[in-house]
Design a protein around this nucleic acid. Sequence first.
RNA 1: GGAGAAAUGGCAGAGUGGUCGAAUGCGGCAGUCUUGAAAACUGUUGAGGGUCACACCUCCGGGGGUUCGAAUCCCUCUUUCUCCGCCA
Length: 423
Amino acid sequence: MLQLHKIREDKDTIINALKKRNIDAEPVLSAIIDLDEKRRAIQTELDNTLAKSNKLSKEIGMLFKSGKAKEATALKEQTADFKEASKQLGEELTATSSELQELLYQIPNVPHDSVPAGNSDEDNEEIFREGDIPKLEEGALPHWELAKKYDIIDFELGVKVTGAGFPIYKGKGARLQRALIAYFLDKNTEAGYTELQLPLVVNEASGYGTGQLPDKEGQMYHVQNDDLYLIPTAEVPITNIHRDDILPKESFPIKYTGYTPCFRREAGSYGAHVRGLNRLHQFDKVELVRIEHPDNSYKALDEMTEHVKNILRELRLPYRILRLCGGDLGFTAALTFDFEVFSTAQDRWLEISSVSNFETFQANRLKLRFKDENGKSQLAHTLNGSSLALPRVLAGLLENYQTKDGIKIPEVLVPYCGFDMIN
RNA sequence: GGAGAAAUGGCAGAGUGGUCGAAUGCGGCAGUCUUGAAAACUGUUGAGGGUCACACCUCCGGGGGUUCGAAUCCCUCUUUCUCCGCCA
């Protein structure tokens, strides 16, 4: 959520920046400014009414105390008007405020200066590429075939037990998955991130805090009996740890990592390109979250992308980094770098990590603040990134490391797996 | 799941209808003293709205109600604690 005072002060800058998202924000922003003025006018009027009414009540109290009951009763009659007026003004205020709030919720984050304009993922800007794409031998298979051939992932069984998009990992497949999780967590804690084990369901307030609600309500599984949501990413429980906090300025940097399964309904995304592990309802992910001083957040973003690069280097997977264009940028992000691994047998790039700076957008909803040098409360910056999303890493590994004799395990993972070949 | 108790400022803890945004203690910050530090003493110290700045308004777990007036009374929800039951 954008900050009201910024909209008031920098309306034109915001409108211009949002053009990169192909949004004409002028009407909404004008409506917001009007509503805000209206809200403040009502607030002032209400405050004045309450002030008068408070004063009167105090006088009544004093009169009663000094035994002048008759005069007090006379004054009581005067309060009726104030009561009526403040009730009405209060209702107007609530209505105006929630109208204002709704409009504010509709506006996505303002893209960073470096974000290119563009309509879709085709306009994303490739800024880095590393690793050799292997030449596969004759008869190379996509990962879903390999999964079947070596009996390491059973998609049909998942359908039987739950439904499509809930695969069951078996034997060396399950072990490889566990190895990857342990390896990622080790890399992250070595880099100073504190490991967390998190709830997999969150309440409504947390959903709003990180911005999944209200705009992505349909993408989350909702447990209706208890009004809880299955997390679509560990970002939600992690970032919400500091909801409503005012941190001392020496708290930074705050660096967390956590492994969780992630649950996504993915409503309406069936069709091509969702085969195998490419798109699931439940998948594992190791996440990084940072909470930073505004002056430091872009440095932190760089550190996070370097960190993810290192992991991919160690896994020896060919990857590229994209700077997302305005049209593809997530609702809450100011700047996002996507990491994609080349999936050789499918001959396509698969997104395996997304590293973003949200600046104050989430912090404003979360009321996540810190005390600055002058002792004033200021919104912190939040960032997050995957390190990494498991299924697509697995897909990349299976496809890129396949040989006639089986699937080789990358060297760094062998100690975690306890084997060096799936065959 | 059943029965009871509780929820107040960074923490501890008073306050049971009337200048209470809230005593007191601890902690934090600033100052005095000191070569420096500690101790002692003095002052200061919640958040949000609003204003050029004041004034003023809101907030004592959340929501609703009673009253001229609510931290205080009533209803409701949530959470915590104790006891019982069940259980990984």
